[in-house]
Design a protein around this nucleic acid. Structure first.
Lengths: 138, 138
DNA sequence: TCCTAACTTAGACTATGTCTAAACTAAGAA
DNA sequence: TTCTTAGTTTAGACATAGTCTAAGTTAGGA
């Protein structure tokens, strides 16, 4: 059973077949899919699954804090099942390949007090960009 | 004259009245507008300006490297005329207010070699999130 | 069993952005 | 000045991503 399903169950969330397929599709991959990609893959296992259910379910899982919504480039949001583990993203400017990465310390500490404009700053996400090994060689 | 217009002229870019209005609209504000917001404001000065020209012009200015395209949350891209000055963004989770901020060092230095996956990493952008003074008080 | 709230569905709708074909404009050539 | 031509602008059609709605389905409690 998917670990994400276990976590969702703890929110008194009804685990329907549709939600299980969506959660397992998300968790079974190491790339961050768009909603359409999740729909496409989940439909291989459950062809009658509707687009609205995928969008609803993803939005609810984000609201529960169990997955992360990533707004990176491109027009579509991506979803990251790894919500409980602080990490950032490294994106190849050539081919779009994305990797999860970890920094040596919390980036919030690198924002001086006089740059905070009175905000209560509580988190930060970093998007690194560069060229992956294949695109460097090409 | 707008400084952005001066920079654009150096690219042998024909400065038409439409492009001037768009550049001045961008540069005259301290918030990062969406394309629709730029269209709306620019139309106050040039009512016949078309949507396609705004989108074309913004995309060309991004391609020339004179403005930045920001993909933050929400469905629309935002445009930042301050392309030549390294900075990051601080966003209020309550009201969406956005500020430009500066860190004490380059975030690329915080990514250890073994987290780079063989990439040539060349830049990083940080999105800080928190609550602005007004939303903290409310 | 029935009832009810939660869930799912198809498809309409909205928002954001791109494309196309035609018209317009500006600058150099004749 | 007029012609030519490449670049620019325009309206509106089109594409894509996501949300909403109303009706039908399902699951669990009374």
């Amino acid at each position: 059973m998917s670990d994400l399903v276990t976590r969702l169950r703890r929110h008194n969330w009804r685990i329907t077949p549709q939600r299980r397929v969506i959660a397992e599709t998300l968790e079974g991959s190491h790339v961050h899919f768009t909603a359409e990609e999740i729909l496409e893959r989940a439909c291989e296992r459950m062809p009658e699954l509707s687009r609205a259910t995928v969008y609803n379910t993803l939005n609810e899982m984000v609201a529960l804090g169990e997955i992360l919504e990533l707004t990176l480039e491109g027009r579509s949001k991506r979803y990251d099942p790894n919500a409980d583990h602080e990490h950032h993203h490294l994106i190849c400017e050539g081919c779009g390949l994305m990797k999860d990465v970890h920094t040596v310390a919390d980036p919030v500490d690198w924002l001086p007090g006089d740059e905070r404009h009175g905000f209560a700053v509580n988190r930060a996400s970093i998007t690194y960009r560069g060229l992956c090994p294949d695109c460097r060689a090409a």
